[in-house]
């Protein structure tokens, strides 16, 4: 393993100082093999990131959460009804009301009528945690038996768009590293991304709208793989089409031929506009700069030809 090879990883991680980074960039410009190695390192990194993200969805023993909650037995008992909905109460009860805990709580409730604002703020934090609002964590489906699927969908949707916005802010300004696999390797790219995401698609041709297909990359959002197809127009404006298979159990009755303007949902996050839709078991979103008027046209064109 050469020194320059090791430094490529450090370059990727932003661990080189400015002079070293400039040197590496000059070498990358002159050495296609080195550039290829960097591309492969980026791909390996994406795969590792995906694996690590998936690990966040491993179930956690209830006893751990219980021990954190009950370690101080002098705590007052929260009045959940005052601040949470019935569905949220079910979620909390489903996780924390093991028989022994419930017995203790019932006994304490008879003795204590104290309301604690701190406890209520903690309950709110717990709900965020339980609904997957932080740390990318989502509960397993069995915890939601009779629970709140609407809330899950809302949280996941917000999470996926926000993460796409973060990625777009980083990658859309890249010149040399805009994509992981270039557009001239479309077949290889498509096969790879279809395999990784589990969502079947073909690369839409947007040249009629003035956008050239530059290539794509694998992303991770909400702990699940995302195929990102990237296009650029003559003004170097970058738009991306992102494709993600929905969680098991979620499905849209609309086929791609039925998608119209009424099915498009517009969002604006971090100076980017999003047009998203769902078809079958797949979510799609087109993202581009805020105020780009043709973005909806691009989304409709993509929906028809994906």
């Amino acid at each position: 393993m050469t020194d320059i090879s090791v430094k490529l990883s450090a370059y990727l991680d932003g661990e080189l100082d400015e002079d070293e980074a400039r040197l590496i960039e000059a070498q990358l410009a002159d050495d296609p093999l080195l550039q290829q190695e960097l591309d492969e390192l980026v791909e390996a990194n994406s795969i590792a990131l995906l694996s690590f993200e998936n690990m966040l969805h491993e179930p956690i023993e209830l006893s751990v959460a219980q021990s954190i909650k009950t370690a101080d037995e002098t705590d007052a008992i929260p009045d959940f009804e005052a601040d949470v909905t019935a569905n949220e109460r079910k979620v909390i009860d489903g996780v924390f009301d093991q028989p022994s805990v419930k017995r203790q709580r019932d006994a304490d409730q008879q003795q204590l009528a104290v309301r604690s604002p701190l406890w209520r703020s903690m309950a709110a934090s717990l709900i965020l945690f339980l609904l997957g609002g932080a740390g990318g964590y989502t509960l397993h489906k069995e915890m939601f038996a009779g629970g709140a699927p609407v809330e899950i969908a809302a949280v996941e949707k917000r999470g996926w768009l926000k993460e796409i916005a973060d990625y777009h802010a980083v990658y859309s300004t890249e010149e040399r590293h805009l994509v992981e696999v270039r557009g001239d390797k479309k077949e290889h790219l498509t096969n790879w991304l279809v395999k990784k995401t589990g969502a079947s698609f073909q690369v839409p041709d947007l040249s009629g709208l003035g956008y050239v297909f530059e290539g794509g990359r694998l992303l991770v959002a909400d702990g699940r793989p995302v195929a990102q197809l990237i296009y650029r127009d003559k003004d170097a404006t970058v738009v991306a089409l992102c494709i993600q298979k929905m969680p098991a159990g979620m499905f849209s009755d609309k086929s791609k031929d039925q998608i119209g303007a009424a099915d498009m949902k517009k969002n604006t996050i971090k100076d980017f506009d999003f047009f998203s839709w769902a078809s079958g078991a797949v979510h799609y979103v087109v993202v581009g700069p805020n105020g780009k008027t043709e973005l909806e046209k691009i989304a409709l064109e993509a929906a028809r030809h994906i």
Binding site: H57, A65, F129, G135
Partner: peptide, 9 residues
């Protein structure tokens, strides 16, 4: 405690 819970995953 809430901070620990948030970090659990």
């Amino acid at each position: 405690r809430a901070d620990i819970l948030l970090l659990l995953p």
